[in-house]
Computed example of a mutant assay.
Amino acid sequence: MPDPDLVAHVVATTPLTPGEAARVIDDVIAFHAQPVEAYVRARHAHLKTYGAKNHEIFARIAEELTHRVVAAPELTERQLRRIIYG
């Protein structure tokens, strides 16, 4: 169960019920707790599904990683490729 004060804040500022707010908070926390490697693999697969090319994907992922709550270390395109392809 997330912090009750946070749940109360979300309930007060949105139309969500306490149960819905708690579920959303848990989902957000789980998303941001995801290891960098898991995020990179999932994001690469998602972008590939929509036809993006690796060069575009790696640049986009590198940029996105800088905006995570706990920023990941800067990764080069080579490091990103190694995460994807081993």
Rank of each mutant, 00 (worst) to 15 (best):
residue 1 M to Y: 09
residue 3 D to S: 10
residue 3 D to F: 05
residue 3 D to L: 06
residue 4 P to R: 08
residue 4 P to E: 12
residue 4 P to N: 08
residue 5 D to C: 00
residue 6 L to F: 07
residue 7 V to T: 09
residue 8 A to H: 03
residue 8 A to G: 05
residue 9 H to G: 07
residue 9 H to R: 12
residue 10 V to F: 08
residue 12 A to W: 01
residue 12 A to R: 05
residue 14 T to F: 06
residue 15 P to A: 09
residue 15 P to M: 01
residue 15 P to L: 02
residue 16 L to Y: 08
residue 16 L to E: 01
residue 17 T to P: 09
residue 17 T to S: 15
residue 18 P to Y: 07
residue 18 P to T: 06
residue 18 P to I: 07
residue 19 G to H: 06
residue 19 G to E: 13
residue 20 E to N: 09
residue 20 E to V: 03
residue 21 A to F: 08
residue 21 A to L: 07
residue 21 A to M: 03
residue 22 A to S: 14
residue 22 A to C: 04
residue 22 A to Y: 03
residue 22 A to Q: 11
residue 22 A to E: 15
residue 23 R to L: 10
residue 23 R to Q: 14
residue 23 R to S: 14
residue 24 V to Q: 13
residue 24 V to W: 11
residue 24 V to I: 11
residue 24 V to C: 13
residue 24 V to F: 08
residue 25 I to M: 08
residue 26 D to F: 01
residue 26 D to V: 07
residue 26 D to S: 14
residue 26 D to E: 14
residue 27 D to L: 10
residue 27 D to G: 12
residue 28 V to T: 07
residue 28 V to G: 06
residue 28 V to K: 09
residue 29 I to Q: 06
residue 29 I to N: 02
residue 30 A to W: 08
residue 32 H to D: 15
residue 33 A to N: 15
residue 34 Q to E: 15
residue 35 P to F: 01
residue 36 V to H: 10
residue 36 V to N: 14
residue 36 V to E: 13
residue 36 V to D: 14
residue 37 E to V: 04
residue 37 E to N: 14
residue 38 A to R: 04
residue 38 A to P: 00
residue 42 A to E: 08
residue 42 A to V: 00
residue 42 A to F: 00
residue 43 R to T: 09
residue 43 R to I: 00
residue 44 H to F: 12
residue 44 H to E: 01
residue 44 H to G: 00
residue 45 A to P: 02
residue 45 A to H: 03
residue 46 H to Q: 14
residue 48 K to I: 09
residue 49 T to Y: 05
residue 49 T to A: 13
residue 49 T to E: 15
residue 50 Y to I: 03
residue 50 Y to G: 05
residue 51 G to R: 01
residue 51 G to P: 04
residue 52 A to M: 12
residue 52 A to I: 00
residue 53 K to E: 15
residue 53 K to Q: 15
residue 54 N to S: 11
residue 54 N to Y: 04
residue 54 N to L: 09
residue 56 E to T: 06
residue 56 E to V: 05
residue 56 E to D: 13
residue 57 I to L: 09
residue 58 F to C: 04
residue 58 F to N: 05
residue 59 A to C: 05
residue 60 R to G: 15
residue 60 R to Y: 13
residue 60 R to L: 14
residue 61 I to H: 01
residue 61 I to D: 07
residue 63 E to H: 12
residue 63 E to V: 10
residue 63 E to W: 11
residue 64 E to S: 12
residue 65 L to P: 12
residue 65 L to F: 10
residue 67 H to D: 13
residue 67 H to G: 15
residue 67 H to I: 01
residue 68 R to T: 15
residue 68 R to G: 13
residue 69 V to M: 12
residue 69 V to W: 08
residue 69 V to I: 11
residue 70 V to D: 12
residue 70 V to M: 08
residue 72 A to H: 10
residue 73 P to C: 04
residue 74 E to P: 11
residue 75 L to A: 08
residue 76 T to I: 05
residue 76 T to E: 11
residue 77 E to M: 02
residue 77 E to F: 01
residue 78 R to A: 14
residue 80 L to H: 02
residue 81 R to N: 12
residue 81 R to H: 11
residue 83 I to W: 03
residue 83 I to V: 06
residue 84 I to R: 00
residue 84 I to T: 00
residue 85 Y to P: 10
residue 86 G to M: 05
residue 86 G to R: 07
